[in-house]
Design a protein around this nucleic acid. Structure first.
Lengths: 220, 220
DNA sequence: CCGGGCCGTGACCGGTGGCACCGGCGACCG
DNA sequence: CGGTCGCCGGTGCCACCGGTCACGGCCCGG
């Protein structure tokens, strides 16, 4: 990104000295990568990053004192933050979401083969995001299933007329009939009629159900 | 997956003969990959797959007659479907979602370097999903932002009492006050009171707004 | 003992939805 | 070309649902 000229500078953070050693060993020998520092918990990670200004941080999640998540959050708040790859043993949704939310650029399982880890470091340093295959699969499934309901919801909205769709959109914002009437320049009774038609066409009973359906169809 | 013993058998599908040639050229030489067939549109893709029973299909989206999306859908419905990598020039959300929904195992941009394409073919054949970095970045951002609004919505629901949360949950399903009363074993009047309290506490005006907020908080 | 939440209830009223109807517009047809 | 048929948008009237108000019982902590 900002032109990393020399070797990629890496800091390894893990509470287990053995894991730290393994990671350092496998990375320090790899092409174009130098391990410039290690840390055993989130607090040490902060100081290590301050001292060594690395390009990439390999961060364990489960650590004593300051967890990898909060350490990631704080690191990403720094002026020129390092890219952070979160390393963990389990890929629970909880972990993944929190890591991504904290600003991690990568999420790898610890059983990833060494070659792929060093490759991931290079990719992340170049600005590309990295996810473990299992995590990628989850995200894809999530998107796919979401897309499915989205398509279904859109299909149900098909028989509506243009004006009725306008009303649906307004209802999906939580607006009252009076507000809708004002916005669409028609009488309140007309709005009611439209709502009534929509309800029968979509086989619903409440306006809230209309709002929810519209939300599923991504008409927010 | 099911033990691909010999070289990985690939079918290349693209309406542009030049692109087909390039892909075949770069893949057929690569380690452990054989291009066993080519096709110029979705229809030909189906017959080609039937004839050659490939492990992986490289599929263009924009093609005359049958598009890559529908071809992917049909291929995935076959008894032992090939893994499908969708190749496209643009990574619009529309394309990505439709491809994933259709059952693609990979989504690559056409400007991906040859080495990575052959690597992607190997990965997909091994059962691992593959996404272009830009697509991965989007999915990550989506998850991250989704998590954010999720947290915010959950925070707003904090001041509610247990009973009120029950009512919120029911409203989020689009249920009427009478139904809620029946389910929670209380009078309709009481339900209304709870709704009223919820509205004031959350600073809302409609029950639909309650439903939408609950949806943002993933209480579906 | 009493004040303050929380839950529950009945009476009142505005907003919401069901129904019947009308004017306008395009399609189809003799 | 005129008739007519169907659909869409719009309206008024009425029943009912949904929301506010005021009140009482309960439990807990001061």
């Amino acid at each position: 990104m900002v032109g990393v000229t020399g070797p990629i500078r890496v800091v390894v953070v893990d509470d287990d000295p053995l894991v730290r050693g393994m990671l350092t060993l496998m990375l320090d020998g790899a092409d174009g990568i130098t391990v410039v520092g290690e840390a055993a918990d989130g607090g040490q990670a902060l100081t290590a990053v301050e001292r060594h200004a690395p390009d990439v941080v390999l961060m364990d999640i489960r650590m004593p004192n300051v967890s990898g998540i909060t350490a990631t959050e704080r690191l990403r708040r720094r002026p020129r933050p390092p890219e952070i790859i979160v390393l963990t043993t389990f890929d629970t949704d909880e972990h993944v979401v929190r890591a991504l939310w904290a600003g991690a650029s990568g999420f790898l399982l610890k059983d990833t083969p060494p070659e792929q880890i060093s490759q991931a470091v290079r990719n992340v340093a170049a600005g590309a995001p990295i996810l473990s295959p299992s995590v990628t699969r989850r995200l894809m499934q999530q998107v796919a299933s979401g897309g499915e309901s989205y398509e279904q919801a859109l299909a149900r909205l098909a028989p509506l007329t243009a004006r009725e769709r306008d009303v649906v959109l307004a209802i999906a914002q939580g607006r009252s009939n009076a507000e809708i009437a004002a916005d669409l320049l028609m009488s309140v009774t007309t709005v009611k009629a439209h709502v009534s038609h929509i309800l029968t066409k979509l086989d619903l009973t409440n306006r809230t159900q209309i709002a929810l359906l519209a939300h599923d169809a991504r008409l927010v």
